[in-house]
Design a binder for these strands. Structure first.
Lengths: 346, 346
DNA sequence: CGGTAACATGTTGACGTCAACATCTACGGA
DNA sequence: TCCGTAGATGTTGACGTCAACATGTTACCG
């Protein structure tokens, strides 16, 4: 009976392993490992032979095996709510770059917005992810109902400080103060505020600082209008502001809502900045080309991302828990959406 | 001499393993594996005991071990150039969601924009990533100089079709035709075009389709103005258009550039849509609140993401290579930035 | 009441890597 | 000459999981 011939061994899909390289180079697997990891106790000639074999076989170390052996995945999870928000996107970008620079991969874990119930299941699955740590880019309040996996190093961006995790964030208070003071300094009697979602700590802090600044200066504090970061909410609240002739200065908690406010003001024929001045927060790329170009508060997402990754990787590698919050400074960018009030009434 | 007491065994950082659970439940590791994977050949009572043990120990399967055993990582890489572009962000979001729904993790691999040289190194490292496949969200032209890892299933979003990888993309031609025809139907003599970067295939196809539509209708084809997707470039080219009184209709290859064009037109006192009509492409959330609200072409990033992930996972699991490009339809969204020309000159 | 199918459960080994330890070689000093 | 030593290289086993196979148990059949 004819033998079953299967060619030169079963064509396995997997790539070449260390042992394949070792065989080809006529050395032991361990030597390949040493070359692969750049250890220096290898004869130059041997190293050459091994490298050649690697090249010939297209050898790539298997990360799964490495991770299994070392217990480290060299990758971190970033948990995001949705990417539509400008800030989140930029933070993610910055975090990914910073992580890559440190040799860590980034696992993107999206949480469905509509079905928040899915959140907890996502989190419970997080424990199964092949990651050494996690960055939470979600509005922190959602964490109330959530149990983070025990023992997984975690850093939160945007938080109340109520949680026992390191926190990295833009200095919200500073930014809101800069925005408010800029408008007051121009001569406005007071400043109205369109806030972010009432459960976001970033939003809360921006609002608190706006209020504080007004109070310090002895100005009346108008009721804050609650938005949700979206352009649409800015427009909605903007309509209210547009109808109120007493409004001469508005501080929106982000640029997107500021855009909505501009839209509403335009629709109602209120001129910007002649009748009403508007300030945003974020300095997204588009803001310089709004009509009129938007005065805003610039925050450094790159720095936030770098600091976040630093804090996380530091905790992963040292096991230590840095509780000190890190705050990244902000900068006022003046464009043409702000000007002195038409008639300085006082 | 006193013994070194170290408590109840060395406190290992690693979580409980299958064997720990097995021991606690008084069964073999294999039975735990069966419960863990939902096989049904386990006595209900035993299953209960195992589940209880899992709960008590907080057991989570180790993905590295699973991956090593099975040769599958259940994760895919998404290679992005930068996240600043709206389209990329939305695609990424959609891909991440679709992948999560299929039980795959997403590895975000950023490629530095400034140092394009880093690109190839990133790619060579890609082989080391613990992924089963890759999605390329980069402008495909960058791939010319790049060697993709052999044998790694890959899908390209935005491509010329020159590569031997499955391609998924919005139907650029259809969208550009809709935009151009909308303006012509309003009575404009012809349509000017601010294109995307000349090396992006999406941009090329939008431009080609714009040109073709004009030609079909026997209209003059003005020179295309080359932008690079950014607001700033839209503004720059917009200045040229604003100075030219012959321009009554503009089709910008994306909403961000359209915003720049609006800015330039405003600055030069050209009214939109009275003097000039403008159409964008993408329908980003902000577009409805530009001033005036932007008429644009809506593309379904969700569908593109889903189709991309489907194609990729399909290839991963079946090993088959679908070469047919997938095109996702577009939709014209009419807002107030377009209107008939002031005086229908003919 | 032996035989055996059907099912629950256990045992073994291999996936690829690398730390720890074991050998082996070459060379210098006494 | 012999030993010690340093450096190169090899051998072994374990990380956690799961497919394949082995064993045990029950129950039903003729």
């Amino acid at each position: 009976m004819a033998e079953l011939k299967r060619g030169p061994g079963p064509r396995r899909r997997r790539g070449a392993s260390m042992l394949d390289v070792a065989r080809l180079a006529g050395v032991s697997g361990q030597t390949v490992s040493r070359v692969s990891n750049g250890h220096d106790n290898v004869e130059p000639a041997t190293r050459e032979r091994v490298l050649a074999a690697m090249r010939e076989l297209g050898y790539r170390p298997n990360r799964a095996a490495r991770a299994l052996r070392s217990g480290q995945f060299r990758s971190i999870a970033v948990i995001v709510f949705e990417l539509s928000s400008f800030g989140t996107t930029r933070s993610l970008d910055a975090i990914a770059s910073a992580a890559a620079a440190r040799g860590y991969a980034v696992d993107l874990i999206p949480v469905l917005s509509a079905t928040e119930e899915r959140l907890s299941s996502t989190f419970s699955e997080l424990g199964e992810q092949a990651v050494d740590g996690a960055v939470i880019l979600i509005e922190a309040h959602l964490l109330d109902e959530i149990r983070l996996p025990d023992g997984l190093p975690t850093v939160i961006v945007d938080s109340s400080g109520l949680f026992d995790y390191p926190i990295v964030d833009t200095d919200q208070a500073q930014g809101a103060r800069q925005a408010t003071e800029h408008l007051l300094d121009l001569g406005h009697e007071t400043v109205w505020h369109v806030s972010g979602p009432p459960k976001s700590y970033s939003a809360i802090r921006r609002q608190a600082s706006w209020e504080e600044t007004l109070t310090e200066r002895g100005r009346p504090v108008p009721p804050a209008l609650a938005g949700d970061w979206s352009v649409g909410s800015g427009y909605r609240e903007g309509l209210t502001l547009a109808r109120n002739d007493a409004v001469t200065a508005v501080f929106a908690a982000n640029d997107q809502m500021a855009l909505g406010v501009l839209h509403a003001l335009h629709e109602h024929g209120r001129r910007v900045p002649v009748d009403v001045s508007v300030v945003g927060f974020d300095d997204m790329e588009e803001s310089a080309h709004f009509w009129p170009p938007l005065t805003t508060i610039r925050q450094s997402f790159v720095e936030v991302g770098r600091a976040t990754v630093d804090a996380l990787i530091n905790e992963i590698q040292s096991g230590e828990h840095h509780r000190d919050p890190v705050h990244i400074g902000t900068e006022l960018v003046v464009r043409s959406s702000t000007a002195p009030p038409r008639s300085t009434s006082r």
